[in-house]
């Protein structure tokens, strides 16, 4: 089990990353809180060693994505309708980027995490394939389709 000090450091260091992934998958504040607790609880109880900070961050991202997917699959979630579902973007995002967020978050589920990991976290297709436990070619295909969709929504030529 990790020390309180280690845990506080991880919360400080990776909270923004966890929050961004939560935003990609989830839509309300309370769900995000649940994911935070799940992810950092897993971190506290994880006994394995991380080779470096990059490895640790990749672990956090994978655990967060899985926690979000588990949450969306949960019986409660499937059988309840949240009033916050309609709110796509949280209020603390800057107005200037609302178009970008709308475009990314309105993508089908299977593209959103790939887009986030590739364009924001700058992981390679191979790394993303490992993190999401998918075939590399599948990642390339997903990225290609996501680019087309984003191009349609946002315009511009720099998606190639």
């Amino acid at each position: 089990m990790r020390s309180e000090q280690e845990t506080n450091r991880a919360i400080e260091l990776y909270s923004d990353t966890v929050k961004r992934i939560c935003m990609v998958y989830l839509k309300n504040q309370f769900d995000t809180e649940d994911i935070f607790q799940t992810v950092f609880m897993k971190y506290v109880l994880y006994d394995g060693k991380f080779e470096d900070e990059k490895h640790e961050k990749a672990w956090i991202i994978t655990v967060t994505i899985n926690a979000c997917k588990d949450f969306l699959r949960s019986f409660f979630r499937k059988n309840s309708v949240s009033l916050d579902e309609a709110i796509l973007i949280e209020t603390d995002t800057k107005e200037d980027y609302s178009e970008v967020f709308q475009a990314v978050l309105s993508l089908p589920k299977k593209y959103k995490d790939v887009v986030y990991l590739f364009y924001y976290e700058e992981y390679t297709a191979v790394e993303i394939a490992t993190m999401l436990n998918k075939n590399v070619n599948t990642i390339y295909t997903l990225l290609s389709r996501a680019r087309s969709l984003l191009k349609e929504k946002l315009g511009g030529d720099d998606f190639e």
Binding site: S15, D16, V18, K19, R20, M23, F36, D92, T93, K94, Y97, V100, F101, V104, V115, Y116, Y119, Y120, L154
Partner: peptide, 11 residues
């Protein structure tokens, strides 16, 4: 823009 947009998200 995508990068900057996500950069504005903080816990």
């Amino acid at each position: 823009k995508i990068k900057k947009a996500f950069d504005t998200i903080h816990a």
